[in-house]
Amino acid sequence: MNLPIPTNFPIAPGLLSSTNPVVRRQSEDPKFVPVLKISRSTLPSSNEFLDADSHTMNQGVKNKFEPPMTVDFRAIRADSTPLQIWEGTVIEVDHKASVMHVELNAKIGQIPRHTGEIDLEWVTEQDKDLVNPGAVFYLTLYKRTERGSIQNSQELRFRRRPSWSAEQLDQIDKDAAKLLSKMKALPTSV
């Protein structure tokens, strides 16, 4: 049976199922049979990817000599939802007034682009070096429900991407040249 490769949930270390094609491929060699570290027969099916509940949901009969679990199957705490997300671009930085002039593009709903000012106090220490004209950031306005109380808050995070490698620049040059070679000059009108 050819099972699809799952990309919708993480595998817990030690919970590698024989139904997973990647594991099955490895297990063809008896030297590399994965060792089960938790007494569970299925992959997590709980509705949190790494939910603590999933530890117990599918537990079968425990082995007497169960090896220790080396890595905890971690619960990822999620308790908020975005109300609005803006992708912003820094236009100008006014260090004297401690503000940045920005252009904001809303990612939820049909809201036209607009400009604004954001106090630099909202920028974390680690992102301060990134505050330059042209820099891109994300501003999330979110709602968090915690122990019965609802909080509205915001988070500002600057975009970080690795710089282009020489190899990538070379590839871009090649692609551009290929594209250019396919272009024809427009006929000139008399």
């Binding site: 993480p10 990817f49 990822i76 999620a78 992708e87 999330t140 988070e155 995070r157």
Partner: peptide, 11 residues
């Protein structure tokens, strides 16, 4: 696998 925590962000 990489999973977001806290405020949802394209970051």
């Amino acid at each position: 696998s990489l999973t977001s925590k806290g405020a949802f962000s394209p970051a």
